[in-house]
């Protein structure tokens, strides 16, 4: 796989999370979704974040993806503090630094596989010809070269998720954030998706997967276990 994730500084961490806290108010009762979470991610790492429901793993992913803001703490991607970015800068950062993969694929139903990959590049202002070329190349790489003109309704769950992965890597982001990417597919398809992510990681792409599925987590380089908004264990820190 030729994708190598751009902007990476091979020496420092590609992602640094520093003392992240996130508090929601449920009525008058404050709920600590994240409580002092810190860790670093190196370029090309394939990480899984696991933990029971409500442990804060999805909140953490949303904060890294700039979909949500922390109450306290900082997130650095490529040494840039994204938590300090203005609201108006968020779209550009998302385009350049982050690729999302969702549990329910979230492809646009009216568009073909090709157009679904293409749309991510539109917002970056890439000219139409180049977008088409890259979309076709990516779909061919993930083995869907013969499905470019198919709409999501004409594809299996696994195929849809592969299109979503192609869309996530289309802009060469620094990090791919995948929220339960195998949550809506069968066991066989799950293996195909995990293999694809592993392959991307081998090519230098940094990937963070949030999952319930320990079979998926075990295939990643590092497992961060969350409990009650805190990191309960991190195989990466054990390795250190």
């Amino acid at each position: 796989m030729s994708n190598d994730g751009n902007n990476g500084n091979s020496k420092g961490p590609i992602l640094s999370i520093r003392n992240i806290k996130k508090t929601y108010n449920q009525g008058k009762i404050p709920v600590h979704a994240l409580d002092d979470v810190s860790f670093d991610v190196k370029k090309g790492e394939f990480i899984s974040i696991v933990g029971p429901s409500g442990s804060g793993k999805s909140t953490l992913l949303s904060i890294i993806g700039l979909l949500d803001r922390p109450t306290e703490g900082s997130v650095f991607i490529d040494s840039m503090e994204i938590t300090k970015a203005k609201e108006s800068e968020a779209p550009r950062i998302r385009r350049e630094k982050i690729g999302f993969v969702f549990q329910h694929f979230n492809l646009l139903p009216a568009l073909t596989a090709m157009e679904n990959v293409d749309i991510a590049m539109r917002f970056s202002g890439i000219p139409g010809g180049k977008r088409k070329e890259r979309a076709f190349q990516l779909l061919t790489q993930i083995g869907l070269g013969d499905r470019v003109k198919h709409r999501p309704s004409e594809m299996s769950g696994g195929q849809q998720q592969r299109v979503a992965i192609a869309r996530a890597i289309a802009n060469n982001p620094s990090i791919i954030l995948a929220d339960e990417p195998t949550g809506a597919v069968d066991t066989k398809t799950r293996e195909v998706i995990v293999e694809l992510l592993k392959e991307l990681s081998k090519g230098g792409q940094t990937i963070i997967v949030v999952t319930h599925d320990m079979d998926v987590a075990r295939q990643t380089d590092r497992i961060i276990t969350m409990r009650d908004g805190r990191i309960a264990s991190d195989t990466g820190s054990e390795m250190k």
Binding site: R92, R94, N106, L108, I119, F123
Partner: peptide
Amino acid sequence: KEFGLMKALGAER
């Protein structure tokens, strides 16, 4: 969902 997705993909206002 579609607009949310577009925002996540980096669409600007």
